[in-house]
Amino acid sequence: MTTISHHIPDSMLAAYAAGTLPAPFALVIATHVSMCSDCRASLEAHHVAGGVVLEDCAPASLSSDLKANVLDMLDQPFDDVPRPKRSGIYPGPVMEQLKGKPPRWKPLGGGVKQTILSSSDEGSARLLFIPAGQAVPDHGHNGLELTLVLQGSFSDDTGYFGTGDLEVADEDLEHIPIAGAGLPCICLAATDAPLRFNSLVPRLLQPIFRI
């Protein structure tokens, strides 16, 4: 098992604990935590801090029947929805987005493929498949981009990212990631800028990938 050396920044982990991260980033964080016991432990630290804040809140008086109602409901049957499980290299949160099915790859040219997991005004999340040794010219993302390696590795100007590593790149970073040798590199990538796939990205990719 490889060691993870690029972890989640503290501010992002705190925001994830508090629930203020855009959904595509929350997906990346939940996926990294599924792969990384260091970050799982740190997340627990933020939950402890959240618990301190909760206990610190001034108690509000409850409706007189609330407690009795809750106690009456304790024996009611309930559906325990099981959380999706990991399948192969795809951790549970990714499998949830894939609705339990294998990714349906769409070619982007040059052997690079993608599967869009979500796209909304909060941003987008997708899986990227890059053949070993292949370069991915900068895709001109707007806003912040998180890239989590699920299989294989990639390198760019900022360093080496192996399986489980998370790269946080702001829009100023002009990076050209190159997939490492060995297995194809499969990443989960998310941005917080609205995805303009139908216009911007294909336009940018067109000369590069000759789509």
Partner: peptide, 12 residues
Amino acid sequence: AQVSAWIYQIAR
């Protein structure tokens, strides 16, 4: 885990 941390998480 700590109970208040756990309840915080469920509440959020």
